[in-house]
């Protein structure tokens, strides 16, 4: 039996907005095993992004239990959580979120600046990550000089350059054409298959779900039972 990477029990998230509150997540129970490629689906506003953010340590739950890689991340301080994210999680966004004034190389190097690696070691890691996403020849290009698909692949390189256990991706193909989307999904599959990364991906795209080992559905903040 594989180790659990994500253990969630009775988790809830309520957004407080002025006078009324929105229950984005309600009594979520979820267990993600090491090496899984979990695909999270569901209608807009069902809480997919919120769940992903909480697991990745960029948002905090309002109730329930949450352990990621054995760590009770809800109790970590803001700074400790930042370090934890840097070491353990790679994040891929729908809108890439590369830094426009930095080149592909410099964008990928960013997370490594927070590690103890030397400049030479950083270079080795960055080039390896960019090679893995097939962009070794674009290292000096700025984001605006790249296509959407290429930008997203740089973003994936940035997410994996620290060799994190967990990679989370929020609609990584949402802004891409079909061809680029396939490239991105292939890379994520390869990361899961060949590099044993645990992957959590939110998507609306049924084709994307084919790459997953597990598919779960959210609706109105609740996780639907496993179907098969």
């Amino acid at each position: 039996m594989a180790k659990s990477v994500v253990e969630i029990k009775n988790l809830s998230k309520i957004f407080q907005r002025d006078s009324f509150s929105v229950a984005a997540l309600e009594s979520i129970d979820l267990d993600v095993k090491e090496g899984e490629f979990l695909c999270l689906m569901g209608p807009s506003g069902s809480g997919k992004t919120t769940l992903l953010n909480i697991i990745a340590g960029i948002d905090r739950p309002t109730g329930g239990e949450l352990h990621v890689l054995g760590e009770d991340i809800a109790t970590l301080s803001e700074d400790a959580l930042a370090t934890w994210r840097n070491v353990h999680v790679g994040f891929v966004f729908q809108t890439f979120n590369l830094i426009p004034v930095l080149t592909a190389y410099e964008n990928v190097e960013l997370p490594l600046l927070l590690t103890k690696l030397s400049a030479a070691e950083r270079k080795e890691h960055v080039l390896m990550a960019l090679k893995l996403v097939g962009l070794a020849d674009r290292i000096d290009h700025y984001p605006r000089q790249l296509s959407g698909g290429q930008e997203q692949r740089v973003a994936i390189a940035r997410a994996i350059v620290t060799d994190p256990t967990l990679v989370v991706a929020d609609e990584p193909t949402g802004d891409l054409d079909a061809y680029s989307a396939d490239e991105v999904l292939d890379i994520l599959s390869r990361l899961n298959r060949d590099f044993k990364k645990t992957i959590l991906m939110v998507t609306h795209d049924p084709r994307a779900a084919h790459h997953a080992t597990v598919v779960r559905h959210l609706e109105k903040g609740q996780l639907l039972p496993v179907e098969n």
């Binding site: 960029i58 930042a82 994210r85 840097n86 979120n97 830094i99 960013l110 940035r158």
Partner: peptide, 9 residues
Amino acid sequence: ALRVVGFSR
């Protein structure tokens, strides 16, 4: 994005 990557406040 910088914060997500791990840069502190």
